[in-house]
């Protein structure tokens, strides 16, 4: 019994919808749970501040939720859009779903960290609650960027007309693009969150260090985002480069491998850079005098951790352009 292409496109759309929302729900729920746990702890320590702490818990959770809402939007679009019945729509829909589903994990967990630290900080240092909220919002916003990259890639995939491209190897380029940005977003979201958590904790401990702590936090977070940007770059190349038609299996497999390589390879360095940034920010908050030494050491350590991400980028580019 043979099914027509329209049937397979629907199969892909509905499976992708499930994948998107299933993966997309993981991160936000963990992050928000962590925030709520810290808020309870903080109210237990300082019940008089419960109003402020409760408010900042809700604001922080709302930001962590946004990654899951992106996944919900993509899932809804996959379920209720009438897609053209072209064979390339099958990889397009699966790829868009995987991209946004995986891409929402890191940002959801990561954005929960600074919100939790802000709640703890308000119990400890009520006078700083305004500044803590600002710092939490900046930190969480940076954690959301990789989820936004994944959203952009999903939208581009769904609304680009691939019908004039050769089926092979374009199917693999499409899948690779989604996988690259999806996996690549996990590490950067988590790493950025760790740095932001340390800065909120630090401001609450030593309110006078607020300017240096926020500055170094932004620097550390920026470095953690680099691997997500490499993954986005590889996705764009895979989506917009035109590849010659082929009957062989090897060329499409090289493009799929490029996406896998850059996506998975971006996870580790970003998490490692997050560890380094967290400790550096923490040290600066304890003793601002060491800011020069700590910033330098943080950047050197992060640069070394970045190296494997760059190897992955090199291998991905070789797979796309040289092979």
């Amino acid at each position: 019994m043979a099914y027509d292409i329209q049937t397979w496109v629907s199969v892909a759309a509905f499976s992708a919808g499930g994948i998107t929302m299933g993966f997309g729900a993981i991160g936000a729920a963990i992050g928000e749970g962590y925030t709520a746990a810290s808020a309870n702890e903080a109210i237990g320590r300082n019940p008089e501040q419960s109003g402020d702490i409760f408010k900042s818990m809700l604001v922080g959770q709302a930001i962590a939720e946004s990654a899951a809402i992106f996944a919900l939007v993509i899932a809804m679009m996959l379920l209720f859009t009438n897609f053209t019945s072209h064979i390339l729509m099958i990889p397009v829909l699966l790829s868009a779903g995987l991209c946004m589903g995986l891409g929402a994990i890191g940002a959801g967990v990561g954005a929960g960290y600074p919100a939790a630290a802000a709640c703890r900080g308000m119990a400890r240092q009520p006078s700083m609650s305004g500044r803590l909220t600002t710092n939490m919002l900046i930190g969480s916003a940076v954690c959301q960027t990789p989820a936004i990259f994944a959203l952009v890639v999903s939208f581009i995939l769904m609304f680009t007309d691939f019908s004039s491209s050769p089926v092979s190897p374009t199917w693999a380029a499409i899948l690779g693009a989604g996988i690259s940005s999806g996996f690549g977003a996990i590490g950067s979201g988590l790493g950025g969150g760790m740095v932001a958590e340390a800065s909120c904790d630090g401001i609450a401990r030593q309110p006078l260090t607020v300017t240096s702590v926020t500055n170094v936090m932004l620097l550390g977070q920026a470095v953690t985002q680099t691997t997500a940007i490499y993954a986005l770059l590889v996705s764009f190349i895979l989506m917009f480069k035109s590849f010659p038609a082929t009957d062989l299996l090897a060329p499409p497999m090289a493009l799929l491998a490029a996406g896998l390589c850059m996506g998975i390879g971006a996870i580790g360095p970003a998490i490692g850079e997050g560890f380094a940034g967290r400790s550096a920010v923490d040290g600066i908050a304890r003793n601002e005098k060491h800011i020069a030494d700590l910033t330098r050491l943080m950047l050197v350590g992060q640069a070394v951790a970045e190296s494997t991400g760059i190897y992955s980028l090199v291998i991905a580019l070789i797979l796309i352009f040289v092979i």
């Binding site: 896998l260 390589c261 390879g265 580790g268 360095p269 490692g272 560890f275 951790a305 190897y311 992955s312």
Partner: peptide, 14 residues
Amino acid sequence: AGLAMGLGAIGPGV
């Protein structure tokens, strides 16, 4: 090759 470099980059980075 893609899997080797991708998976192999996680550990050293962390």
